[in-house]
């Protein structure tokens, strides 16, 4: 790790005053320290926000769920009201990484993680995502069994955030604060796909800090679930994960969000799968058809064709889990 100065802040104003000149924000520090140990980033200054009290706390109000960005994944996973009304979010937070990581990792840090791609994460490789001197995507011709199977023509990274999947499905918004004021960004606009910019991963601008994450109160009849599939039962990145939000009118599905996590470089909604579910009675047939529809436009690479089957299964089983027609999958993670 490079040498750096550590600036411990107590207020948002102090944090905003410290940003710039290559400084990086540190909350739980899990992804950041990982990147620093691998020499992927070498910031001269870390701005510690972990002791900023105003960035903590989980509040439920009539309009929805207000999450301080310093809420840990453990706090979110164990919160009774989140488990009840925002099940997919509790599921996603509770099945990320390990208990120790979940006790430290924050929601803000979770959605701000850098992408997973072993070429990007290795200082031995230059690539176009790293910006300087290379126009290569090594995953396209190299080892790519865990890479993206959709929207992968420019860069085949995947975004590892489990919580981003339900946050997108539940219509969450991220509050960004800078010296010039605040702005709200919908989760659907938060991530920048590589075909728009291979370098910028989010719309967060220099000098901005995530100060709140808001999830609107679910409509009556809303049911949601999240399941993640990986090679190991614990501490593993997903190789397929699905977040499903259904608004049910009796047995009939009135609205649906089908979100795929590590299918593409950013979490995406599958309009094709949603079109299959809306207006239908949810049963095994419609759930399977939704899984198939979601993979219609998949463009797997040389080694990751198996992920299309895994996503079809993840979507089918998670739709039925959300609808209350199937138990949590024993072969899913956790």
């Amino acid at each position: 790790m490079n040498k750096f100065a550590f600036v411990d802040c107590k207020t948002v104003d102090q944090v905003l005053g410290q940003l710039g000149d290559g400084a990086m924000v540190k909350a739980g520090g899990i992804d950041l320290l990982d990147l620093m140990k691998e020499d992927i980033v070498s910031p001269p200054r870390l701005v510690n926000i972990r002791n900023v009290d105003s960035l903590r706390g989980i509040t439920i109000s009539t309009d929805g769920l207000h999450l301080g960005p310093l809420s840990t994944l453990s706090e979110i996973a164990s919160h009774p009201e989140i488990q009840r009304s925002y099940s997919a979010l509790a599921d996603a937070a509770g099945h990320a990484a390990t208990p120790q990581v979940r006790n430290m990792a924050t929601l803000g840090g979770n959605i701000m993680q850098r992408p997973r791609c072993w070429y990007f994460r290795s200082s031995d490789f230059d690539c176009k995502k790293k910006g300087e001197g290379s126009d290569e995507c090594h995953a396209h011709n190299g080892e790519n069994q865990y890479h993206a199977i959709m929207n992968n023509s420019s860069c085949a990274m995947v975004h590892p955030s489990s919580t981003a999947v339900p946050l997108l499905g539940l219509g969450a918004q991220v509050e960004l604060t800078s010296k010039r004021g605040k702005r709200m960004v919908a989760m659907s606009e938060f991530y920048v796909p590589p075909e728009k910019s291979v370098v910028n991963e989010t719309v967060v601008r220099p000098g901005e800090l995530i100060t709140s994450i808001f999830v609107p109160a679910p409509e009556p009849g809303t049911r949601s679930a999240y399941q993640k599939y990986g090679e190991k039962e614990s501490f593993d990145w997903p190789i397929a994960d699905a977040g499903i939000v259904l608004v049910m009118d009796g047995a009939r599905c009135r609205k649906a969000s089908v979100v795929l996590g590590v299918a593409a470089p950013t979490p995406i909604r599958s309009k094709e799968a949603e079109a299959v579910l809306v207006g239908k009675t949810i049963d095994e047939g419609t759930a399977r058809a939704a899984g198939k529809a979601a993979m219609l436009h998949a463009t797997p690479l040389s080694q990751n064709g198996y992920k299309t089957q895994l996503f079809e299964t993840a979507i089918y089983r998670t739709v039925l889990l959300a609808a209350g027609q199937m138990q949590r999958d024993q072969s899913a993670v956790g």
Partner: peptide
């Protein structure tokens, strides 16, 4: 703990 925006290091 440290009070205010206090810098340690490098």
């Amino acid at each position: 703990a440290l009070h205010g925006a206090q810098t340690i290091g490098p």
